[in-house]
Design a protein around this nucleic acid. Structure first.
Lengths: 221, 221
DNA sequence: ATTAATATCAGTATAAATACCCATTCTTAT
DNA sequence: ATAAGAATGGGTATTTATACTGATATTAAT
């Protein structure tokens, strides 16, 4: 049966099948929310949007093929009527800032309750955005960071060259520069250059930062 | 209506509400599988088991309060009739080995399809265990590692002292030893000792390994 | 064919991490 | 009270990481 007020159409892009399906089932139980389709990654979502636009796109931050930020950017460009709610495993100020800068209308953690997500959906429909206390704090924290020319997290994954990705993975596997050089048949100096480029591109200060970047952006799994 | 064959009672310990609820809903749709209760962490699950034992406990590897391995060990000890299926975000050979060694009857990835999980449940009920190709390979890889006295992943989290946890977190935040020393008002030498102990306890080879350990075991979030 | 960009490799220098040795203090268990 | 163990701090040496400057080779673009 149809109600007088139109339902809110929601689509979801999320690579974990169980989470994706679970989120859809739960959202269905909320009033006026209608989950119209699910996608495994950003690219698939964009293709589905071609056929049927939705009011809200719930987009996982970390996805294969096309990540959450890139997906958000393209949705904003090609489907301006669709509002984007980012879900992320990690609550990093840089992540929140990057999401908002690229046109996301809200940012929540995957640990949050479904009620919180439903609340965000209603709020985005009504006011155009939703930020709770935690994400607001993170956003402000990020904006207050001086010298904000640090490269935005997670937008660089696809800009990393194959060599850089290989070296990054091996760094995460606890290999030293010399060991990596031997394995990839390159000079130690070359690997050092690649590592330096990685530091510069990701904005990391050292090896620890590189590993954090790699995990949070799913360079490694 | 009751069927002649008794249902398989399943309980779940998983901290992410949406994943937990989603998994329960999906498993309900499979034949003979009855999800009897859900818990947010291992401790809660053990308390629920006191009241009502279940045939299968699906246990997340990485949980607050009581992690998957520790939970498995206690289930094996106190509720030997309950079989344990571990779900993990990460497919590390060390993780699989550790799970099996502590009495888990199966190990799956959170990326796996619900069908795979249902299949594992049926198999565990019938044969007492379930390992698919991927986990079998990981298990064998782990067993074949020479010098296997590397401390088992994820069992040490609670054995890390407060100081060690603080230092580990700061390492992940890209601070150098000197910087950490200044912040915690200890000598650089002391912080170095703590770091050395961390390397020894976690079995990591270097900073990269420490960061990997911290993330995968939820020392940091 | 020439230019521009990128990948590769090198020298040098400093800072940080890692690996051993060991001493002192402080807490805790008996 | 005392012994054991943990926390703190130190010396020294080696390896690794990081920071510069810069050269050569390879590739891509025009």
């Amino acid at each position: 049966m149809e109600t007088t007020t139109r339902n809110i159409t929601v689509c979801i892009a999320e690579d974990q099948l169980i989470f994706r399906q679970g989120l859809a089932n739960i959202l269905h139980t909320f009033d006026r929310i209608e989950v119209v389709y699910l996608a495994e990654n950003g690219l698939e979502l964009l293709q589905r949007l071609e056929d049927q636009v939705a009011d809200i796109a719930i987009v996982d931050f970390r996805m294969p093929i096309l990540n959450g930020i890139e997906t958000t950017r393209q949705i904003r460009e090609r489907f301006p009527a669709t509002k984007v709610l980012i879900l992320s495993m990690y609550s990093e100020d840089e992540f929140v800032k990057s999401a908002i800068e690229n046109g996301a209308n809200g940012y929540l953690s995957k640990d949050d309750d479904p009620e919180e997500i439903a609340k965000a959906i209603y709020s985005i429909i009504e006011t155009g955005y939703y930020l709770n206390d935690r994400t607001s704090k993170l956003l402000i924290a990020s904006l207050m960071k001086k010298g904000g020319m640090k490269p935005t997290f997670s937008e660089l994954k696809d800009q990393l060259t194959d060599s850089e990705k290989v070296v990054l993975r091996m760094i995460c596997e606890e290999f030293t520069t010399q060991e990596i050089a031997d394995k990839v048949f390159k000079s130690k100096r070359t690997v050092e250059t690649i590592r330096t480029n990685l530091l510069q591109k990701t904005g990391a200060k050292n090896i620890a930062g590189l590993v954090m970047y790699a995990i949070k952006n799913e360079i490694i799994t």
